[in-house]
C-alpha cells in the first residue's frame, strides 16, 4: 500500500529478543541494513509476487507483530536458503523467518496443508501415510519392512515440547 500511515506506531522492540530466546542465531537480524539482496535472489518473490523476506525482517526488527504474524503470505517461503548464502551481513534470513512462522502458528496462522502433515506426524511419526498400494509394491520389490518407531517414546517428546498441544489443540 502506497503512503500508508500507521494510526499510532506500536513498535515492539523486544520482539527480536523473543526470537533470540527461541533461536540463538536470530540475533543476526540486528545487522540487517535492508539492502534487499535476499528479496533479489528469492525464488518465491519471483514466482508469487507476494513474498518479500526483506520486508518481513524489517517488520520483525520493528516488532510490527500484528501485521507480521497474521499475514498468510509469510508462509510462501520455499526454504531454499539462497538468502542466507547471499546476505552480506550474515543474517540467517530464512531460518529466522521460520521462527517467526512458529509464532504465527501459535496465533492460528498456519496453512491447512502444513497442519495436515503435522497431524499425520503426531499420529504415526511420519508425515506421509502408508498407502496400501505402496505397501504392495514394496512387497513385490522385496523391500524390507518399513521402520516401526516406538510411538510412545515419540509422544513423550511431543508432550515435552508442547507440539502435541499445538497440533491437537
Amino acid at each position: 500500500m502506497l503512503g500508508r500511515r500507521l494510526p499510532k506506531t506500536e513498535f515492539d522492540l523486544e520482539f527480536r529478543k523473543k526470537l533470540e530466546e527461541h533461536f540463538h542465531e536470530a540475533r543476526t537480524i540486528n545487522y540487517c541494513f535492508q539492502c534487499g539482496t535476499c528479496t533479489g535472489c528469492c525464488p518465491s518473490t519471483k514466482i508469487t509476487g507476494r513474498y518479500n523476506p526483506r520486508l518481513l525482517i524489517e517488520s520483525a526488527l520493528l516488532g510490527l507483530t500484528e501485521d507480521l504474524l497474521s499475514s498468510p503470505d509469510i508462509w510462501l517461503c520455499v526454504a531454499c536458503h539462497t538468502c542466507i548464502e547471499r546476505c552480506p551481513q550474515g543474517v540467517k534470513v530464512s531460518e529466522v523467518l521460520s521462527i517467526i512462522r512458529n509464532f504465527a502458528t501459535r496465533k492460528n496462522n498456519v496453512p491447512e496443508g502444513v497442519k495436515a502433515i503435522a497431524s499425520q506426524f503426531v499420529e504415526t511419526g511420519f508425515t506421509i501415510p502408508a498407502a496400501a498400494a505402496i505397501l504392495k509394491r514394496r512387497q513385490e520389490m522385496k523391500l524390507p519392512e518399513l521402520p516401526k518407531p516406538n510411538t510412545e517414546e515419540i509422544m513423550k517428546i511431543f508432550e515435552a515440547t508442547g507440539f502435541l498441544k499445538l497440533v491437537r489443540g
Partner: peptide, 11 residues
C-alpha cells in the same frame, strides 16, 4: 539482472 527496488518493494 534481478534486484529488488526496496523503495517500492518490487522485484
Amino acid at each position: 539482472v534481478y534486484v529488488e527496488d526496496t523503495y517500492t518493494s518490487t522485484l
